[in-house]
Design a protein around this nucleic acid. Sequence first.
RNA 1: GCGCCCGUAGCUCAGCAGGAUAGAGCACCGGUUUCCUAAACCGGGGGUCACAGGUUCGAAUCCUGUCGGGCGCGCCA
Length: 612
Amino acid sequence: MKSLVQQLQTLFRRALIEILGDAGRDADPMIRAAGDERFGDYQSNVAMGLAKMLQTKPRDLAQRIVAALPQETNDLCEPMEIAGPGFINIRLRADRLAEMLEAVPPTTAPDRLGIEPGERPHKVVVDYSGPNIAKQMHVGHLRSTIIGDTIARMLEYVGHEVVRQNHIGDWGTQFGMLCAFLKDKMPEALSAPETVHLEDLEDFYRQASARDKEDPAFHEQARAEVVALHNHEPSTLRAWQYIVDESRRHYMPIYRRLGVSLTPADERGESFYAERLSEVVDEFRERFGTESPAARIVVRPDQGALCIFHLTAEGEPRFKNPEDQPLPMIIRKSDGAFLYATTDLAALRFRIRDLGARQVIYVTDARQALHFEMLFATAEAASWTTANDGVQLDHVTFGSILGEDRKPLKTRSGENIKLADLLDEAVRRAEQLIRAGEADETKRRGFNEEQIKDIAEAVGIGAVKYADLSQNRQSDYVFSWDKMLAMEGNTAPYMMYAYARIRSIYRKGAETIGEKRDGKIVLDESAERLLARQILRFPETIEAAVAGLKINLLTDYLYALGGVFMKFYESCPVLKADTPERKASRLRLCELTARTLRIGLDLLGILVVERM
RNA sequence: GCGCCCGUAGCUCAGCAGGAUAGAGCACCGGUUUCCUAAACCGGGGGUCACAGGUUCGAAUCCUGUCGGGCGCGCCA
């Protein structure tokens, strides 16, 4: 099934070809959802712009377009109306809406709601989360992790081949210190690593760091371990491996709890690229070491460091520092060590050449925008992006999570909030709300302890994720427990409540559902029609969300779906409908709504509950 | 100084490949429960879309400038 917008576009494009000839083939019919119910379901705004080109009156042109629409248009739409300066208002036929919903196949796994995969699937790498080894995950990792995961899921949903890459911070000089500390303090971790657990990775890191400062002998030992690590000394490598494994035992449960789809197989950390760095540097030195008028980059040492300087088309420096001097991307420090720009170049090259990516998406906070601009400019200049029939590079940025004081969210003592603690708190608050409901005679559902725990977990975690994902990712947002756990507004609990209400209908009417599942759908009431239309808008929502990598388009859609369902629920009795046909029809609308909610929330990695 | 992002209702935010009377939640006022989950639904008040120009039949949306805020700008990532 194609989206409603696509169907309308096809019809209007044929009309435009009729009028414009071949030029109509590329014209955008400008189909938009109507802003006001009185104007129908959709509108085409193409006539106004085009009229100028054709030197005719917009309303006349609109008339011609409507007249040129193919015959099948009448199967989908009521007669077009022309309004205002030349809007073509489109009202979909209720019987067609009903038929389209009837045609949605029964649930299969994965539930695609009858949506076809996109037309041009490609291989896309999504780089997200990227926790630091030997440190606990904190709020700073939350957005990259859940935004990236949702993007990966959405891309997969529309048919792309997604390769997740968890670029973990598992390499660098601090690991010498950590290995030295581990060998000294916890040698048993090296012989029987499964039996030893670090209670608190952060504390471990802090201790090692403190000792490194105070104890010169230890400092020397740490330096020796860095060398040993680079040389793959077995004992050091074992210590390093233990640290990585232990860190994984810390963050995998957090991923699981967050409903994040990353697995250990998706990890390709900095260590993976360590041995490819000199090779990458050599490539740039050889290709761009001498100035050439055509090249947009020059590679040369500056103040002892090996640098890539970017140039504009006019040969001017593309990036500048505050002293108005050219700002290079440093790929080798003056002490000979490589740094993150080097690793990112190596990783990008690997993703394009070895993984065969046609698109690489980086999900990091907006503060790294300059770094990625330089990285992408370098890849362009080196023609890496011409591989695989063209590689598209995207930096998906996001703002900071702020506290009520509008400053970056921290604990009272100014520390980063641990993600594990944040999630515990969310679940604790959700549980409180449920218990408050149970204590109220008029609201009591009669949950047992296990149910309370399960619902609290789903609602609490869902609330944190939804609050984040429903924001325009570009902007900073103020973290508020009360808002994210509220039943009013665009929140996870509201959406989950809508779902639970539907499930409740099914529990109550279970005996009649089985045989009614393929019943006819009738859309007599306005609430029924609006619900049907909203369900059918899911495909175009996903298209738009993927095209712009904008997750909040999906949450906005779900909120609207929840809203029209609630209205339907209030005004259209389902189990007590006046006829068996109407009951069957409404049950199907309920079923399709529930499926759509579940799929949408699943793309966000949020669980639904049967009762709440 | 330069660059990126932002400025929309009292508050928190949507809307920004231009489209008709700018939306939602909170807060405020009022209504709905012998009826499938009232953690819901319905109605009401509330706006010079920071400001000034420009492009356009049409601008919250695009362009320029000003003001205000956040972030970034060579060997951390």
